[in-house]
Design a protein around this nucleic acid. Structure first.
Lengths: 242, 242
DNA sequence: AGAGTTATGTTCGAATTTTAACAAGGCAGC
DNA sequence: GCTGCCTTGTTAAAATTCGAACATAACTCT
């Protein structure tokens, strides 16, 4: 593969992490090449992109966490995720500052919280924020930035700087892949930045995963397994430190 | 709406919760109607589905409406606000950076935008962000911070600093009170901070109000009337500079 | 430099999607 | 039953996308 071609595909990936779809015409304009070249680029990586009537869509892996797939993923792992979150409840005490990671797992935890729970919540995902905003006694701090539809989350230096000024009692993390040797990984690098910073600011870091994540590897590494104070799965406390 | 039509739309929702997309032909076969009818059904609920080259895509399932949304539904000035926003459309050109204020007016403007509009949107309100996030070609920048339920908005220095780094083409502002002599005011001081900074970064500042706001005064002042490049009400362009 | 290979652009026709217009069918109210 | 209104189906034309074929440009290797 050409290096130019590689660059273009990377640019496409980047653009598609910010948009749910991109028309070939726009892509051609952005990349400064002809539409035909865009077609060829996209066709060259069917595992990354798909065509739909002149629009380029990011390909969603079966287990990827994307707005499109949330309902399906929720169906298959919903009960597991609820069990995991039920265990997480005992790490929370009144009036603490809690960090909520993005993904499809954490919303279950929020739903399990008492409606009038008192806490300061920190998050960087739109759908997590919406849920937290409904709790009347939650003081919500949101890390803003550039929006990424794939995870409904935000990225940017302002969010990282906001974290610098926060003392977090408990950070609840999620991961798209967990491996005993290689550690915890996620799909996007901007998520990894936030996760790392949140863990460094937290007294206690708790990883919440369903077992389908074990043994998987995703591109963005964010922590080795030893750094978590607890790793919860639907089977309870788990030790994956190889 | 027909009851048959309602059933078909429900069946479409069901089918699309398990697949990322559905071709019109398949949908027609499943529903036992013609492709044209499927087209008409889908076009009838643009907030639930979208077309992409012969395929039907689901939108993210919208969760229950937040308290703030509910109050919006009971908004007595809805039609006036829609009219104001219809006029605001002509200030927008493709590929610009647009600032959206918080409040109950701006959501109408977003609903009036074409689904595939290309822009960079800047906002600091949860319900505005939620709406903007559904537009596939909008690059969304969110100013985070501490959440204020009264206006579903965020406050904090990180948002103001993010604005420092932005060049805004058009800023659409709202106000809770507008007075020819005293200028534009709003209910909360943190909103005023953001509004002022957004206006200072914007090439063009447009104030969107319904006439019920005229003559009212609220605690937080944010701009005199001369500083707006346009003031739109349901009666059109208005000059309130006393 | 020259030949061979690969990458990119252009063009064109086939296939597909979109849209509008009109016809047919169903249903409520009189 | 008839009328008027709404829904659905059919058709045809317009616009768009797809994919192949060929031409040109760029790059690699000797």
């Amino acid at each position: 593969m050409n290096s130019r071609k590689g660059q273009r595909i990377a640019m496409l990936s980047e653009a598609l992490s910010q948009h749910r779809s991109l028309h070939i015409r726009q892509a051609a304009a952005i990349l400064g090449v002809s539409e035909m070249t865009v077609r060829r680029d996209v066709s060259a990586c069917p595992e990354q992109f798909s065509f739909l009537g002149g629009h380029i869509l990011p390909f969603i892996a079966a287990d990827a966490e994307s707005p499109y797939e949330i309902s399906k993923a929720a169906d298959s792992h919903a009960s597991a995720k609820r069990e995991v979150c039920a265990q997480a409840l005992k790490y929370i005490r009144p009036d603490q500052t809690i960090f909520f990671d993005c993904g499809t797992t954490l919303p279950y935890l929020i739903d399990l919280l008492p409606d009038d729970i008192l806490m300061t919540a920190v998050c960087y995902s739109l759908n997590v924020a919406e849920r937290l905003a409904r709790k009347p006694n939650v003081r919500l701090v949101m890390l803003g930035g550039l929006y990424h539809p794939a995870s409904a989350s935000f990225s940017g230096s302002s969010g990282l700087e906001t974290l610098d000024a926060l003392v977090i009692d408990v950070a609840f993390l999620s991961a798209a892949g967990v491996d005993g040797r290689r550690g915890a990984t996620c799909a996007h690098f901007h998520e990894a930045d936030i996760k790392r910073k949140a863990m460094s600011q937290a007294q206690t870091s708790v990883l919440l995963i369903d077992k389908s994540k074990i043994g998987k590897l995703k591109p963005a590494f964010f922590s080795d397994m030893q750094s978590f104070d607890a790793v919860l799965t639907e089977d309870g406390l788990t030790d994956l430190s190889a």
